[in-house]
Design a protein around this nucleic acid. Structure first.
Lengths: 175, 175
DNA sequence: GCACGTGTAAAGTGATCGTTTTACACTGCG
DNA sequence: CGCAGTGTAAAACGATCACTTTACACGTGC
């Protein structure tokens, strides 16, 4: 496997498991099986590594949502949570741990949330045949809720969110 | 003001603003206007301080929800977010930053989420006249979603959540 | 009147942090 | 052959971390 890919995958796991600040560079280099010199050559510094992990994670998530449907959206979240234990949204966690003071991390967070919003906008159009801002907003809310509730109540939270989203979409469709 | 109260209030603000790990003991003692020796006499160590902050925060939140209604629940969240900038759920953030490895912090988080769930259970009974597990689950989901979406989209997220909760409760009531 | 509890100020503890540096090995290409 | 590129291993950097210690000030109650 490519060094950068291996580094980002290892870092993502360790950051999720132990938090960003609590994960030292030693643990990262050891986990990825590379020297610290190589790590710094690739990502510059720790904040660069965090930003790279987030951006890669965003890309991977959107690759997982294949079609524009409620089922696909929450299905993606479900598979995600099933194969990697996630303790809340990694983007918000990184942003919170750095106080929002690191531009590259804050931007990665904003970009991810905006992309999520756009994606949900497309889903709403595909589901009810027209644009509906309130429904988009509510669905992002449900998605955000499922992500965080799953941290302490397990994957079942995603089912609840999906059902609520379907119910709300049906109500709008019928009106 | 009592020393302990002042310490917890200062710590809560600093933890929320900069994160738990990134907030050093120096900044805490300076912010609270006390010596480090006094701090350690009161809370034992940093994890003890974090746990104390969380437990006090939980008590303050429930004191803010006076009656068992949807409006009161989301109204409390709204006032909360208006007067103190919150970057996601402080309980989940503390739990995430410590990797869930600090028992006193993990317990404070679990206890808070359980108390929130119980409270919502009472609200559902008060609103629709009977118990409904799915509605409780969905309402906690909306609450969690509002808490985190407000971090990057502002207090308006709470309005969206409240409206969705009302709509879902009405649907159950009508059925 | 003096011990005791509670506070401050400030130096010091060793450990760990992110990052840089030094020295060296391997590989592919001219 | 020689040299540039890319990697490793490991020591060293100063800063900062959570936490402890030492020394001293003040008020209260027996």
């Amino acid at each position: 496997m490519d060094i950068r890919t291996r580094l980002l995958a290892t870092a993502e796991q360790l950051f999720d498991r132990h938090g960003f600040n609590a994960t030292g560079m030693d643990r990262l280099t050891e986990g990825a099986g590379i020297s610290s010199r190589t790590l710094y050559k690739h990502v510059g510094n720790k904040n660069g590594l965090i930003a790279a992990v987030l951006n890669e994670r965003d890309r991977r998530f959107h690759r997982l949502v294949e079609e524009d449907s409620i089922d696909a959206l929450f299905g993606a979240l479900e598979t995600w949570l099933a194969q990697e234990a996630v303790r809340g949204c990694l983007f918000l966690r990184a942003w919170g741990e750095t106080g929002g003071d690191v531009p590259e991390i804050a931007e990665a967070m904003e970009r991810h949330k905006q992309r999520l919003r756009d994606r949900i906008g497309n889903i709403v159009v595909a589901e009810i045949g027209r644009h509906d801002d309130e429904l988009v907003e509510t669905m992002q809310l449900l998605f955000e809720g499922a992500t965080h509730m799953a941290a302490y109540r397990g994957v079942a939270a995603v089912d609840v969110a999906r059902r609520a989203a379907q119910r709300l979409a049906n109500a709008v469709r019928a009106s």
